[in-house]
Every structure is written in structure tokens, then in C-alpha cells.
Computed example of a mutant assay.
Amino acid sequence: MQTEVRRARSSLPVKRLNGMAAFKRQWPLYLLMLAPMTFFLVFKYIPMAGVVVAFKDYNIFRGVWASEWVGWDVFREIFGMPQFYKALRNTLMLNVISLLTFPIPIILAIMLNELRVKWYKRVSQTLLYLPHFISWVIVGGMVIQLLATHTGSVNEFIKSVGGQPVPFLEDTVLWILTYTGAGVWHYAGWGTILYLAALTGINKELYEAAEVDGASRMRRIWHITLPGIKPTIVVLFIIQIGHMADISFEQPYALQNGYVMDVAQVISTYVYTVGIQSAQFALATAVGLFQSVIGLILLLTAELISRKVNQQGIF
């Protein structure tokens, strides 16, 4: 009887509210949306008008609109700089290496989800999330204190047992490994939050049925857990692909030094050095615009490939 009632209710036409009626009924939700919309409007969309600086011979005293229009001359100047190509190469290289660490938050989330002792699970989550709230300035100082060739704690220990100091921050290959490891430590725990949220949406009855059928824990993870969070994995992977030409300023700037500038100078620090310190604002704007266009192309390409292969994507 109850099943028939549900079917009858589901067959009834759903009355849709018009715009004003929906606003009156759900106005608190619209009010809450006002703050993030204002943030994006003021700090994301309005500043986009400043992109015009990339096409002008910008003079800080004459202002944006009064400066002389030079078209693509600034971009031609950028593409004639060897340092720009080196910064672009380093940005792509470091992002590709960081992309190889993409599965780590997934593995951590699955491991946390499999823990059955609640207090241990809460402590583990807290310890994993904590590094995200530490500034990269502090993280850079910690890395130097630990891994400096002559004064770092790790090398002091190596010397105390008769070994030779390891130039973690002076050798280019070791610096890249240090950079990647620091990034994993800083971001991986926070990245597990989205995957843990996705894991809560998996029907628990699937695990129970698989357990009754004699499936091992690894089988349940492979055939239930991973397919259950596959949409989240695809979306986050596409977003990370879209950031391949983009890289944060804080991490490379906090960890770079004069010994490793050949691999540590990335687009964000290059913009700061050439555009801000040298007061070439048009140059900095043009590099940022180029970076955004490349990121958009990569994002759309990854979206297209994902839809062709997995029939899933962001849009």
C-alpha cells in the first residue's frame, strides 16, 4: 500500500515556483549568496578591466586609460626574453611533478575512511589538516632549519654519524624533490576533505552486500570506494590540469635560493622580479594574461578529453 502511495505521489506534476515566489520563499539563501557574489565581483571581475595594461605603454603617472596604446608590442618583448621561457619551463616541470602526487590525497582519504577507532581517526585527520594552516614563510623557514647543508638538523645528524652533508637546497634535483615533498606535506591532508565528503555519499549497503559475498577489504575499495568517488576525482583532476601553467607565488619564493634559480624561477616569481621590482607593470600584466589563457586552454582540453573517455567532466 505504501509503495502504491509513493508511486502515485511521484506521478503527480511538480509545481514550479516562478522567480519572485522562489525569492520570497528562499530569501535567506539568496542573502547568504550575496557575500561571495560581492567578493567575486569586487576582487575577480572588476579588476579584469586592468588587463588593458598589457596592451599599453603603461605610465604610472598618466594612469591606465591615458597611457599610450601599443598593441602586441609588450607580448613581442616577452617572447623575446630567454628568461621567460625558462620560467615557463620550470612552471610546467614543477606542476607536472606535482601532478604525479595527485593520488596521495585519495589514498589518505581511503585510509582514513577505513579506520574504525574513532579517536585515532580524529587525531590523524587533525594532524593531516594542520600543515595547511601554516604559512609558506614559516614552512620555508622550517625546511631551511631542517635541510640546510651546513646548519640544518638533518645534516647535523648525518655528520654526527660520520656521513657527508647532503645539499638538499643547493643541488637542483634534490631541491625539486624537497619542493615536491614540502608541497605534499602542506597540501595533501587538506585535499582529503573533498574525498572524505564524497566517501560519505556511498551507500553503506553496497559494502555490507560485498562483505556477505566474501569480498576482501581491498576488493571493496577497488570495486565500490573508487568508483563511488570517481566523479570527484575526475573534476579535481581536470581543475589541476587547468592550473598547469599557473603556480603559487609563496611556495617557490619561500624555498628558492641563488644556487637553484635555474629550476626555481617560475612565472609567478618572474612576474614579481621583472614586473613589480623593476616597475614594468605592462610586462607583468602581459605575462599574467598569457598564463591565464594557457590555463583556460588546458582546462578546456582536459574537459574535452575527459568527456570523450569517461563521459564525465566539470561543465
Rank of each mutant, 00 (worst) to 15 (best):
G80D: 02
I97E: 07
F133M: 09
T285L: 00
P227A: 06
Y253W: 09
A87H: 05
V42F: 03
R122C: 05
T126L: 13
M33V: 01
Y195L: 11
V139P: 04
A302F: 00
P231K: 00
L127V: 13
L99V: 01
V53M: 12
G295W: 01
L206Q: 14
Q125R: 09
A302S: 10
T178K: 09
N18A: 05
L147I: 05
L199A: 08
Y30I: 08
P231L: 00
D73T: 13
F157I: 15
P227F: 01
K44I: 00
N18S: 12
H132T: 06
Q280E: 11
M111Y: 03
L115H: 03
K56P: 10
E250L: 04
Q256L: 09
Q26L: 06
Q256V: 03
H223D: 12
F290H: 12
M261D: 12
D171P: 08
A198N: 07
I107D: 08
L255T: 15
A21Y: 03
E170V: 00
Q164R: 11
E68Q: 13
Q145V: 04
I138N: 09
A286M: 07
I238G: 13
I241G: 14
E250M: 04
V184H: 05
Q83G: 10
K230D: 04
W65K: 10
L236M: 15
W72F: 14
L41Y: 00
G63L: 04
W175D: 13
I176P: 03
M218R: 10
S98Y: 00
T149V: 07
Q125G: 10
N95D: 07
W65E: 07
L115C: 06
I247Q: 12
G201A: 06
D213G: 00
I104N: 10
T273E: 15
A198E: 06
Y253S: 15
L146M: 14
P131E: 03
P47D: 04
Y120A: 15
L169I: 04
V154S: 06
H186A: 11
